[in-house]
């Protein structure tokens, strides 16, 4: 298993290399001139040219790519075109707020989704099930932007219980993570429901009942544990997306995270930051994917690693 783990890690290197080429080409293919954007709309052409020289953007693309990869390998991600700050420092600063927000959103939404999904599955076809799934659909389709402002208006402005935005203390995590997790909770509920319904048809569930086990144990122990594989897969996927930082939620809640950073960087065609962030997202996704695969083995010992 350790062997499997190490091989998977090694396999990430070529993948990341391909991604780096793709990301580089894609970003440079986008219309938009960073020098002009940095200079601002009211700048003269002379101002723009002086910025272009200052940022080495007049170099051939291939050298810019070589620089980028050299930077990646040495883990020095270069400097932001916009602020001149080291990109690694910017990402390090934005990573933790997004990380904690993602963790909170994931934890509550997965717990909620599991419970709601299992209850819905057990009472399949009942009014409770329909109501739950209606809520889930609403959760998926409700725009984060709107939900976030609604929560902020009620809890921060109207009741004054929580701060509106920013990340200064742990309680600031509540509203953004609620907003961010709503969609995930809904997805998890639906996923859990269908996974539990599938597992409930399995022979070993009938065996569990034939043993005279309590229904509670049949569902929450025997069925749920087996239903966890698709659920964990989905949770991993969602976590990957969350860790990328939600641009909308971070904007609404003034969250100093990776989503805000990316949005600014894209708006200003801050190549160094965009490239580094997308490489980070790719790496996170690959790692989470690996973690999920390793988790399978703990959930279901029948799964073997090759």
């Amino acid at each position: 298993m350790l062997n499997y783990f190490l091989r998977r890690l090694a396999a990430m290197v070529p993948v990341l290399f391909l991604i780096s080429i793709f990301v580089f080409l894609f970003i440079h293919a986008l219309p938009g001139d960073p020098a002009r954007l940095l200079a601002g709309e009211t700048a003269t052409q002379a101002e723009v040219e002086s910025i272009r020289r200052a940022l080495n953007l007049d170099q051939p693309l291939i050298w810019q790519y070589v620089d980028f990869v050299a930077n990646l390998v040495t883990l020095d991600l270069g400097n932001s075109l916009r602020t001149g700050e080291p990109v690694s420092q910017m990402i390090a600063r934005a990573f933790w707020p997004t990380f904690w927000l993602s963790i909170c959103a994931l934890v509550w939404s997965v717990l909620f989704g599991l419970v709601a999904g299992v209850i819905s599955a057990v009472r399949r076809g009942s009014p409770g099930d329909h109501a739950g799934m209606f809520l889930a659909v609403s959760g998926i389709s409700m725009p984060n932007f709107w939900l976030g402002l609604l929560l902020m208006q009620y809890f921060s402005v109207h009741l004054g219980w929580l701060g509106t935005s920013g990340f200064d203390e742990p309680s600031d995590l509540i509203l953004p993570s609620l907003t961010l997790g709503a969609g995930v909770a809904a997805v998890m509920a639906r996923f859990t429901r269908s996974a539990v319904i599938d597992v409930a048809r399995e022979d070993f569930i009938r065996t569990a009942r034939a043993k005279g086990l309590r229904e509670r144990i049949v569902i929450w122990k025997h069925a749920l544990r087996n239903a966890l594989i698709p659920v964990v897969t989905m949770a991993g996927l969602q976590f990957g997306f969350l860790l990328g930082g939600s641009i909308v939620v971070e904007k609404v809640f003034r969250w100093p995270g990776l989503g805000s950073l990316l949005l600014d960087a894209i708006n200003f065609r801050d190549y160094a930051v965009v490239q580094s962030e997308i490489m980070l997202f790719s790496l996170q996704f690959l790692l989470i994917n690996l973690a999920v695969d390793m988790l399978y083995g703990f959930i279901n010992p029948a799964i073997r690693y090759k």
Partner: peptide, 24 residues
């Protein structure tokens, strides 16, 4: 009925491959 199952009357099934819970 639950208390009777497995105690007074027990049952085995056709598919031994799928009738046991794979995770325990």
């Amino acid at each position: 009925a639950r208390l009777m199952r497995g105690d007074d009357i027990a049952m085995i099934f056709q598919e031994p491959m799928t009738s046991l819970n794979p995770v325990f």
